[in-house]
Design a protein around this nucleic acid. Structure first.
Lengths: 125, 125
DNA sequence: ATTGACGTTGACGTTAACGTAAAGCAAGCG
DNA sequence: CGCTTGCTTTACGTTAACGTCAACGTCAAT
C-alpha cells in the first residue's frame, strides 16, 4: 500500500501522539479515509497535518490552522468565495510579515542581552 | 509622578485587562512597587510587560517569557550563572531563527495559494 | 455625604488542546 | 488456539491563561 499511511505512521513521523491526530479529526481538520474502521491517510491528509503542526509551532490556534488549510485546499469553486478567500490570504500574509518583524525585534534584543552578558563575564566586578 | 504608571495605564496602553497584568504578577513575571496597597509600575516593569506580550504574540508560554525576561534582566552576577544564561540566549536565538524560517515557508505557501486562487478566479470552469 | 472612578484580594468559571484510562475488536504469529 | 500488537470508541482528567464575579477600600468631585 504505497501512498497510504496509518495513524501511527504519521504519529511517529511528526512526533505527535495518535490521540492528537484523532483530536484534529474530531475538530474537523483531518478527514482520513476508512478501511473498515481503520483510518488511512493519503498525501493530502499528510500535508494538512504538516500545516497544522507548523501553525502550532508558530503559535496558531486550531481555528487559524483550519483557515490555512482552507487556503491551500479550497472547498468551493464559487468566485465570490474565492475572492473572500483571497482577502483572507492577504490578511494572513500581513500577519506573518508582522510576526517576522517581532521575531527580528526579539533577535535584536537578544543580541544586546548577549553582549551585556559577555561583558559582565569578561569584565566582572 | 513622571516615570510611574498605574495598572490601568499599562492596561490601556497595551490593550490588556488589569486582570491579565495581575495574573502575570501572580506568576512572578512582574514585581511592581506598592504605594500602600496600590501597584506602581516603573519603566523596568513596563519593559517586562512588553516582552511578555511580544512573546505571547509569538506563541511563547509564560515560562518562556520568564526566561526571556531573565535574559534581559539577569538576577545574578555569578559568572557560572551568566554562562548558563548565555547558553540559554544562544538556544533561544536558534529557536527564533527556526521560527523565522517557518514563517517564510508559510509565506511561500501562501503565495502559491494566492496564485492558485487568482487563477481559479480569472480562469474559471 | 454620596456618587463614581479606580484600586484591592479572593474564589470560582471557562476554553483550548490535548492526556489518560477503560474496554473491546481484528489480524498475524508461534 | 491463545497471545500480542495495533487499532477503535467513549469518557473523564488536566493545564495554561486568563475571565468573571463578589465584596470591599479610597480618593476626588459634585
Amino acid at each position: 500500500m504505497e501512498n497510504k499511511f496509518s495513524i501511527s505512521d504519521l504519529a511517529s513521523e511528526f512526533q505527535v501522539t495518535t490521540r492528537t491526530i484523532r483530536f484534529y479529526e474530531e475538530k474537523g481538520l483531518l478527514t482520513p479515509v476508512r478501511r473498515g474502521s481503520v483510518r488511512l491517510y493519503g498525501p493530502r491528509e499528510r500535508v494538512k497535518l504538516k500545516l497544522i503542526l507548523r501553525g502550532r509551532r508558530l503559535g496558531f490556534s486550531l481555528d487559524e490552522s483550519r483557515d490555512i488549510i482552507e487556503m491551500y485546499d479550497p472547498e468551493s469553486e464559487n468566485v465570490k468565495q474565492l475572492q473572500s478567500l483571497l482577502e483572507k490570504i492577504h490578511e494572513k500574509q500581513g500577519q506573518l510579515e508582522a510576526q517576522k518583524k517581532e521575531v527580528n525585534s526579539m533577535l535584536k534584543d537578544l543580541k544586546i542581552a548577549e553582549k551585556n552578558c559577555l561583558d559582565a563575564i569578561s569584565h566582572p566586578g
